[in-house]
């Protein structure tokens, strides 16, 4: 993974990296991905992917709304709390 690829991935992940970080991560991520290549040794043709442990396929319950006792307390955790809203910087220049 080269510097350009690290920058592309960091941008997808919303991480603004410093130049020195890009170089360090490029060599570390390359080493880690190289290690992951080991998985190619395992035959997996036709094996269904397991995203979760078994026996837990989408348990459902009635969708009942329960009021939260202190909604303002939730909003006020934000540095941008304004009334019942979160203020953020502009989305478009």
């Amino acid at each position: 993974m080269d510097g350009a690829e690290v920058r592309r991935i960091a941008s997808l992940a919303r991480l603004e990296l410093a130049d020195a970080e890009v170089d360090r991560f490029a060599s570390q991520l390359t080493a880690i991905l190289g290690y992951f290549e080991k998985l190619r040794e395992v035959a997996t043709e036709g094996v269904p992917p397991a995203s979760h442990p078994p026996e837990l396929k989408g348990p459902v319950r009635p969708d009942v709304a329960a009021p939260w006792p202190d909604p303002a307390g939730l909003v006020n955790l934000s540095r941008g709390a304004e009334g019942e809203f979160f203020r953020v910087p502009r989305v478009l220049e």
């Binding site: 941008s11 992940a13 990296l17 410093a18 989305v91 478009l92």
Partner: peptide
Amino acid sequence: RELSHMYGLTRAQGFGDEVKRRIM
């Protein structure tokens, strides 16, 4: 001043190296 820049900086300043590596 702009939202995605705020996200990127907040996360870059707030997360340590191992978390950044794993997210990437």
